[in-house]
Amino acid sequence: MHGQNFFLNQPLAIEKDFLLSLIPNIILGYQQKNFSSAENILQKAQGKIEMQANAAQSFGADVFPVVLDISGPIVKYSSWYYLGTQDMISILRRLDANPTVSGIILNIDSGGGMVSGTAELTHTIKNLSKPTIAYTGGYMCSAAMDIASGANIRMANPYADLIGSIGTMLSYQDFSKMFEKWGAPIYEIYAPQSTEKNKEFRDLQSGDPKAYEQRLKEMTADFISRMEENLEETLKDDGHVMKGKTYTPEQALSVGLINEIGTLEDALAKF
């Protein structure tokens, strides 16, 4: 199932620097019309898994671990260049039902992304029957950290970038003045019964962020609660970990965001 992803004016669980780095690529993709279709993105991900299976079988392995790459922004639907969480869920369920798969490694390099769809993927990972390892050699932040929390073990390469960033934000852009400058004024008329329709954004446009702050507060409370539950055996709250701080691999190990430091080969060796 494929749908539309939105990054502007939507709640995000993402590192701000990572978000800003994505925008030029997304704009360029639209300009050059070189985005992959959802079907091609899914086919590419499945092709990588098939290559792993073929390689393992060529060496005579009856069972073998599978690596699923989770890189770039976390999006709900496969689009642009990225595999969506909905398709990841389908892939993981098939792997979980495959008797030749001994374990699953989530190879993560992401600064986060959309709130929508993330908790569902985390729940799916947590309830897989196969053993799982979340590994990063780069970034494992925000929505990506949420996803990693569902795995049985979390590992990071000693040279990985950043881990953590537990929290949510809104990146809000008001284009109305730009459209008016172009001679396209925007008119919004609401039915008298629709006093609550789009109220969060209308309040935000008028300079009052309280309603949206409350929405983000509730989303973040859900995020934190899930992290506390999933990491309860290792988490050592330093007073900052649940407030959006990011950590180096050694620091992440000390606060319990990860269980081990090692290479992808070390992770594969566990299976």
Rank of each mutant, 00 (worst) to 15 (best):
residue 44 K to D: 10
residue 53 A to N: 00
residue 148 A to T: 02
residue 193 Q to Y: 14
residue 182 W to P: 00
residue 131 P to L: 07
residue 171 S to R: 08
residue 129 S to D: 11
residue 122 T to D: 04
residue 198 N to I: 04
residue 193 Q to T: 11
residue 142 S to A: 13
residue 154 R to Q: 13
residue 47 G to S: 12
residue 89 I to F: 15
residue 27 I to F: 10
residue 100 T to N: 11
residue 177 K to G: 00
residue 223 F to D: 06
residue 60 G to P: 04
residue 81 Y to V: 10
residue 77 Y to M: 02
residue 128 L to Y: 12
residue 265 E to K: 13
residue 184 A to T: 10
residue 263 T to E: 01
residue 157 N to H: 15
residue 125 I to E: 04
residue 23 I to P: 00
residue 155 M to Y: 13
residue 141 C to R: 12
residue 2 H to C: 11
residue 3 G to D: 14
residue 145 M to T: 12
residue 195 T to V: 15
residue 239 G to Y: 03
residue 97 A to H: 05
residue 151 A to M: 09
residue 156 A to H: 04
residue 2 H to E: 11
residue 140 M to F: 13
residue 13 A to R: 12
residue 116 S to H: 14
residue 251 Q to V: 01
residue 171 S to Q: 11
residue 204 L to S: 05
residue 243 K to M: 02
residue 237 D to K: 07
residue 166 I to N: 02
residue 174 D to Q: 07
residue 172 Y to H: 11
residue 42 L to F: 09
residue 137 G to E: 09
residue 175 F to E: 08
residue 194 S to C: 12
residue 263 T to F: 07
residue 175 F to V: 10
residue 89 I to W: 12
residue 183 G to Y: 03
residue 219 M to C: 14
residue 121 L to P: 05
residue 162 L to C: 08
residue 113 G to E: 00
residue 190 Y to A: 04
residue 56 A to V: 03
residue 154 R to A: 06
